[in-house]
Structures are given as C-alpha cells and as structure tokens.
Design a protein around this nucleic acid. Structure first.
Lengths: 257, 257
DNA sequence: AACCAGCGTTGACAGTTATCAATGATCTTT
DNA sequence: AAAGATCATTGATAACTGTCAACGCTGGTT
C-alpha cells in the first residue's frame, strides 16, 4: 500500500520530464487528469486503429509501436521509453498498436479532456509540439538506419542510437574505461522486426561485429562496445541520434585517447 | 511582369492550403511576412545543419529532404510537395539538407519572426502541429515500406503512396477506366536512395512488376498501374498513406468492378 | 527432478541484391 | 548537326540475406 503510493508519487515526478518547463499549475491539472497503469511484457496498451480515446506518457519500461500486416508479419516502427508521449493528439485512430516490450508503467489521459486542456494552455501545447518534433527526428534517424543495406550496418546504427538516446535510462548504458556496456532491451525477434530482417540474420550480424573486434557479446542482450568509431563507420559515419549528446560522447572518446 | 505578379498571387493562394482553417487576419500577417523564391532542379534550398534561419512552405514542385553521409552516399528521408512545411520550428539546426528535385517554388518566413508569431496565434500553432503530425505519419509509412525486404515490394509500396498522397497534385496521377497513370517525379537514383537500394535494382524491380502484369512502364518516369490490389498484396497488404483517402480509393476500385 | 516451451545460435542451401561493366536513349552544349 | 553528358537499362558474377532445420540453453511447469 505504502509502496504503491510511493511508486505512484515517483511515477508522477517522472512523467513530468516529458512536460519540462511548463507552468506548475498546468502540471497540477495534469496530475489530476492522469491515471497510472501497469503492463506486463507482451501486453497490449493500445490496439491498432483504436488510438482514439487515449493519450499517454511512458513512465518506465519500454513499449513498442508496431503494425501488424495481414500476412501476420509485424513491423516495429519505434520504441517508446520513459518520458515519451504516445497517442494521436488532434488526430483520428492511428494505424499502429502499442505493446509493452518489457514490464512498463504508463500514465494515460482521456484524449478529449487532454486536448481541451491543451487548447487552454499554450505552454503545454508547445511542450507537446517539441515532443512530436523530437519523435519526427527519431523516425528519420530510423529511416537512415533502415536505408543501410547490410544488416551489420543497421545493427551498428542501432547500437549507436541506443547509446545516444537511451543513455539517460536506468540501466541500459554503462560507461567504462575501455568501452561501454549496452543492454539491448528487446528480444532478437523484436530487433529483427525493427531492422527489417530476421532473427537469424540479427544473430549473425552481431557475431560478425564481434569477430571484427568492435563489440563483445557478454549475454544475448548485453554487449560490450569497444569501438564506437568503427560502428559509426559501418553505419555510414552518421552521427546518429541526438545533437549535443552525441557530440559530447565523441568529445569524451577523444579525451580518453 | 504581370505574369510574375499573377504567379505570386497564385502561389500565395496555394500556400494557404497548408494553413487551412486559420483566421484571415493571421493569414494576412503571414502574407506580409513571407517571401517567395524559385529553385531550379538540383538546387539547394537549405544546407545540412543550417536550418536555423528559415521556416518555409512548398508552393509547387518537389523537394527532397536528405542527409549526406561522409562516404558520399546520400540518403533521402522524405519528399516535400505543395503545401508541406519545412524547417525546424522551435528547434536548432537540423541534420538534413533540402534540395529541389524538380523546379520548385517555395515561400519562406524568417524563423524567429515566424515563431514569435506562432506564440501569439493559437490557431496557427495548431495548424503547424497538425502538419507535423501528418509528417510523422508519413515518416512511419516510409519505415513500413523500407521494412520490406524485397525491392519490388518497396516499389509497390511507393507507387501506392504516390497515388494516395500525391493524388491531389497537378499532373502526377491521372485516373483512367482500366487503371491509373502515375508519374514518378524523381530519378531512378533518387528513388533508389529513397528506398535504400541501387538504381539498377530499382530498374529491375519495376520491370519485374511489369512482367507480372501489375504495371506498364510507358516512359521511365510514367507508369500505368493496372492492378493496385496486386501492388498492395506485394507491399504487405498495408493500406498505405492516409486514412480516408485510401479507403476512398479502395472503395472506388471496388465500385469499378 | 524431469519435462516442456521459448529463445538464441549455427549450418546448409536457395533466392535476392550489390557490384562492375557495357549498351542504348535522351537531352544539353558546342 | 555533332559531340558530350546524363540517365535508364541489361548482363554476369560475387556477396549477402532468407529459409528451413537442428541443437543447446534457460526458465517455468508438472
């Protein structure tokens, strides 16, 4: 009971990171409006074409946004992590379903209510817009990664993205002196569907990177990256992900030498 | 001279489609703020990492948003057509450059001025947000298309997208009784970079679709689509593009039979 | 403790694409 | 009009990936 209350308080503090910089009173209204829910891995959060009722925000865990084709194949178009918004503000039902890739906590807002409130608080609207712009950038980063023809290049790009984007998350990225431990938070199958390939090819590509000496596979979902420059080269020398954070990483690496 | 004036007037009317539903007075302010420019095919509109100064709107022609990798390869992450906005509202310099794929007319706004105005007119801000949301949907549609492993599937998806999204454009799509003429507004090389492959493969895939009887290549950039259902099947049976418009197309096709 | 199911890995082979090279067509330039 | 350049196409071969199958491992079940 007490633990639940603590948890909820902590979660509330957390989701505010998605709405940083907005008026405290606006935040208070959001707090009242929101409802915290928990999902186990594999559970559906929002069904395809039923995104109409809810707007939400990820508190913890990882969700995957995906589309199921009629032939049964599933394409993942993005991952949602702590602080990300989902749902379609101002829009009709979406074409993508959202499922929990890991155990996850989200807070949801009734869509109509949220939108109405959005119209009355310009700062919140701007925060939401910034969030959407950020999502757009990420979607384009994904497109660049997917444009690589070699699977190992896509894997390399994904690892770079993991480090730059998910560095702020709890236990996914751990820097060391001679490299970085990166936890891959999804299964091989998910990763394959994310990169537009098959689990077998993902496995082979990862081990190819290991044979090249760029990474070491400590556990299936935990790799030790020894050379980010080599990965960047294989990914097309793109500085993936986010702006300054990546610059910081690069500078940090230069400093180490 | 008179012709230029006419052109400008027409262009101004056109760009308003991006801001439909906003207050007439707001529109008047935008008209004053904007500046119309022309670009020839191949010209650069905005250089990579220099998106800081301008926000713009496409009036005519087609622009490509792209990223140049250090090894010289170029990845196209999207096409901009009449009515599309570009530039990064509220954001820093972008990672993508914008070039004219065809002769194009755009109108530009000084970014700082535009943003300041944005904060004062909620309806414009909402219009911009809707535009961005739309862009996000399209980016995800692209990701689905790119996730197809067979090139011919991606081509099929691209043709469906062309029809559903570009149907409103001047002379790109022309419906007939037994099919639809679709003009491909970019070169094979551009198309290859858009679909993450090579020009040779694009050519082969198009001719493979022709051999299957799904399309006929009238000219290199003009194909006659005989069977959209076959294309949809090859693209993964996805109803690509936008919501109701696609439904309309499908229903229209059913009606024809 | 034995069993079962799911996941990651590896191998062999077929299918598809990338690459290199050459040809023909279209358009621009001289 | 001729030369040159760019583009689309086609062919042949190498490289890569998808597919099918089998194996070992881990975690939960009976």
């Amino acid at each position: 009971m007490t633990r639940d209350a603590d948890k909820k308080a902590q979660d509330l503090k957390r989701y505010l990171s998605a709405f940083h910089g907005i008026d405290p009173r606006t935040r208070a209204t959001l707090d009242v409006m929101c409802r915290v829910r928990s999902y186990r891995a594999g559970t559906t959060v929002v069904r395809e074409r039923e995104t109409a009722e809810i707007v939400g925000c990820v508190l913890s865990g990882i969700l995957r946004m995906q589309k199921t084709l009629v032939d049964g194949r599933r394409h993942i178009v993005g991952l949602l992590v702590s602080g990300d918004l989902f749902g379609r503000v101002y829009e009709g039902p979406g074409e993508f379903s959202i499922e929990a890739a890991t155990e996850a906590h989200v807070c949801t807002f009734p869509k109509a209510e949220f939108e109405a409130f959005l119209k009355r608080s310009p700062d919140l609207e701007r925060a939401v817009m910034l969030n959407i712009l950020n999502e757009l950038d990420r979607a384009r980063d994904w497109m660049i990664i997917l444009s690589n023809q070699k699977i190992s290049s896509r894997i390399a790009g994904f690892l770079l993205l993991l480090r730059s984007r998910f560095a702020s998350l709890d236990d996914l990225v751990e820097e060391a002196i001679d490299g970085t431990k990166v936890r891959i938070p999804i299964s091989r199958t998910d990763l394959a569907q994310l990169l537009g390939t098959r689990p077998e090819s993902v496995s082979r590509a990862l081990h190819a990177l290991q044979d090249d000496g760029d990474i070491r596979i400590l556990e299936p979902n935990l790799v030790f990256v020894r050379n980010f420059h080599a990965l960047a080269r294989k990914a097309g020398e793109q500085d993936i992900g986010g702006m300054s954070s990546v610059k910081d990483i690069l500078q940090e690496e230069k400093r180490k030498r």
